[in-house]
Design a protein around this nucleic acid. Structure first.
Ligand SMILES: [Mn+2]
Ligand SMILES: [Mn+2]
Ligand SMILES: [Zn+2]
Ligand SMILES: [Zn+2]
Lengths: 140, 140
DNA sequence: TTCTTGACTTAGACTGTGTCTATCTTAGGA
DNA sequence: TCCTAAGATAGACACAGTCTAAGTCAAGAA
C-alpha cells in the first residue's frame, strides 16, 4: 500500500489526505467497490471528502494502471485494486458478490480466425455467473 | 420476424402497433441497439411512440427470452435479437461496433474447481476487445 | 520559517440512462 | 357495437457520473 503511495509520489502526484484515504480504502483482496462505496468508507476517516474528489482520484488511478474499472452489471462501475495480476470475475446472481478467479489457458485461443472479422484483438474479459454457496443454501 | 409476433400472440400478448414496430426495429444480424436507438428508429415509423413504451416492451421481450440485454461498456445497455443461438461479443475499442462471435469449446471448462469458491456456476460471458479493420486503418 | 502558486478539493448544477405514476387510449372478447 | 383490463403516454423522479467556478493547501523557493 505505501509502495503504491511511493509510486504515485514518484510520478509527481501531490499527496493529499483525500488521495491517501482513497488508496487505503482500496487495499485488500477481492475488493470491488463502487465509487459511492469508496466515498462512504473514505468519509468515515475524512468526513468532508467530496464525491467529485473520489471520482477524480479513481479516474486517475485507472489511468495510471494502479486499479481496474469493472462493469459487471448495468449498475455502478466497480473499482479493483488487483491490477497487477490478470484475472477474471465470478459473480453471484443473487447477492452480487464478486470474486477474482484465474482460468487456465488463454481465452483468446478459443476464437478462430474466421470469427475475428478482421479485428486486431487484444483482450478477452470473462464473467462467470452463478450462485454462491450462501445463496444456494438460502434458496433451498 | 412474424414468427416472433406469432409466438408473442400465443403467449397472450396484445399486438399493438407500438410492440410491432419495436419488434421490427430489432430484426437482423449483429443488431445491438440501445433503448434510445430503438426508440429513434421506431419513431420514424410511429412518431408518437414514447420512451416508456420502448423500455416496457424491451423489458418484456427480455423476460420472455426473445431478446438479450447486453452491457459491454459502462454506458447504455444494448438489446440483441439473437437470443436463439448462444454467442459472445467482439467490441471495437475505438468505434464501439459489436459483432456476434462463436468461440470453440466451453469457457466454463477453463475454470478449475479450486477457483470456483463453492459457487454453482451456470454461465460464462466473454467480451473480446480490439480494433476493427476500419479503425486500424484510420489510426495508422 | 514563511511565502507563493498552481495543483487539488469542494458544492452543487447538470447530463445520460432508466424507472415510476397518474391518466388516457385501445385491442379484442362478449 | 360496447366494455374493460391491458397497454400507452407525459413527465416527474432516481441514480451514476461529469463539469464548473470558487476556495484551499502541498510543497518548492527564498
Ligand atoms: Mn477483480
Ligand atoms: Mn449479440
Ligand atoms: Zn450470493
Ligand atoms: Zn472500430
Amino acid at each position: 500500500m505505501s509502495d503504491l503511495l511511493d509510486r504515485l509520489r514518484d510520478r509527481g502526484w501531490r499527496l493529499t489526505s483525500q488521495r491517501r484515504v482513497v488508496a487505503e480504502v482500496l487495499d485488500g483482496d477481492h475488493v470491488h467497490l463502487t465509487a459511492d462505496e469508496v466515498h462512504a468508507r473514505a468519509a468515515e476517516r475524512l468526513p468532508e471528502i467530496s464525491r467529485a474528489t473520489v471520482y477524480n482520484t479513481l479516474g486517475e488511478l485507472v489511468t495510471l494502471g494502479e486499479i481496474l474499472e469493472v462493469a459487471t452489471d448495468g449498475r455502478a462501475k466497480r473499482y479493483d485494486p488487483n491490477a497487477h495480476r490478470p484475472h477474471q470475475h465470478l459473480v453471484c446472481f443473487a447477492c452480487g458478490t464478486i470474486r477474482d478467479v484465474h482460468p487456465t489457458g488463454d481465452p483468446l485461443a478459443a476464437l478462430p480466425a474466421a470469427e475475428r472479422f478482421g479485428f486486431t484483438i487484444t483482450a478477452a474479459e470473462v464473467t462467470y455467473r452463478g450462485l454462491c454457496a450462501d445463496c444456494v443454501r438460502r434458496s433451498g
